[in-house]
Design a protein around this nucleic acid. Structure first.
Lengths: 226, 226
DNA sequence: CGTAGCTTTGAAGGCGCTCAAATTCTGTGG
DNA sequence: CCACAGAATTTGAGCGCCTTCAAAGCTACG
């Protein structure tokens, strides 16, 4: 499937396959860029750091976020295996990045030749990733600007289910309720209440392990996401 | 100033100059892509339309937005002269686009050769624009997720002032209060109240023409934007 | 000068927030 | 295997910011 950007004369590797899905890279050939393992909750980079490298998630989950002066936090994205993050237009990182779970990362220096190296494959992947990031950001603006707490949770659960490519309807959320709250523009309490209410209404089930969620009524959830 | 992406081996035209500023293109050489004039409030394309072209604003202002099933609207961005919009990864437009004011557009078909044509200058411009769009979206998520009505208005006014490159402190907003509301995740009434309150507090002045705003206390406004 | 539309203002209500506390889960040690 | 500590999550009560509904005020334009 050819995509618009590819068609626009940009690197044609835009095999965006399913929009929003993070596939484990098919291209596993050797690439410049070493591996790095970070423990859960460990910092990867901070706002203002020199943006000398960018990263690709191999395994685990990463969050990128910004803070207001008084500590309010907005998590702009959770990065799953296959996702690229930390690439900046300017010289410094505009976000903080931390591992949500233990994570394995591919670190890439942002030197021209390093990327041009493999025939531009990584460069094309980067552009594709940027495009996916933009689309996700756009979807998320709709969520933050116009959806109710209930709708935000429904949307989030469906999105995570799709991205984590869990064939079934059960998914294990890698992040805490607080992380969800700071991603969805809510408080922890509101997240908890909305999740509980979705369970009461039978749209989802919550096994004793609170990180687990079973999607019981995909259609109703999709309606809530509109 | 070299930028990260440029450094990353991508098209090196990333002269993102000042982040967030829309300059009137310096490169005015002939380009494939014809002009199109749209009247104020006229539709440019709709969600679901085949995304055969993308656009660059020459003059005027354009809004792109999406609707929820029940009509709630989220304006993801206002596009000012120099901005590119309507470029999609998929085959269809994911947004609606309408002219806010009468606008002059450069229409570009998204064919490979059309872009490769001028030595890739347009292609590089497109990537740069995508990156700027992503940064704006990220800033906007912070606004929508975590800022109060007052803070949203302050942030919006400062951003528009910067983007419209009005040397002074007076700016003429091209859009209605309703448009502002649907961009800022508020209601018209809340926008009006917050604007009025900023005036009472002396941070801005409102000439009788309600589209005009004078920024009286940039520092206080900046503090509100944090 | 009159009308239509946008903007502002007013009053009341609700959703999500704040503050507080109970409950459940997890991991550790006995 | 069970008990316990600490953390995460859930639940409860009251409040506040923004929304909703309604109407008045302004501006722009014919």
């Amino acid at each position: 499937m050819q995509t618009a950007l590819a068609t626009a004369g940009l690197p044609p590797v835009f095999s965006t396959s399913l929009p929003g899905r993070a596939l484990p890279l098919p291209t596993t050939e050797a690439r410049p860029g070493h591996r790095r393992i970070v423990a859960a909750e460990a910092e990867i980079f901070a706002e203002g750091d020199r943006a000398g490298s960018f990263y690709k998630v191999v395994s685990g989950v990463v969050r990128t976020y910004r803070l207001l002066a008084d500590g309010r936090r907005q998590i702009d994205a959770f990065h799953l295996p296959g996702d690229i993050f930390g690439l900046e237009a300017g010289a410094e990182h505009r976000f903080n990045a931390e591992a949500v779970t233990e994570a394995q990362l591919e670190v890439h220096r942002r030197e021209p030749r390093a990327l041009a190296g493999d025939g531009g494959a990584l460069a094309r992947e980067v552009v594709a990733s940027m495009m996916r990031g933009l689309e996700r950001a756009q979807d998320h603006m709709m969520l933050l600007g116009r959806k109710s707490a209930r709708e935000r949770i429904a949307t989030f659960l469906l999105t995570m289910a799709r991205r984590m490519a869990c064939g079934g309807t059960a998914l294990e959320l890698p992040m805490s309720r607080t992380d969800m709250a700071d991603h969805l523009g809510l408080t922890v309490e509101s997240v908890s209440r909305a999740v509980t209410q979705l369970e009461r209404d039978g749209l989802i089930a919550l096994p004793p392990n609170r990180r687990m969620v079973v999607l019981r009524d995909m259609e109703a959830l999709a309606d809530l996401s509109e």
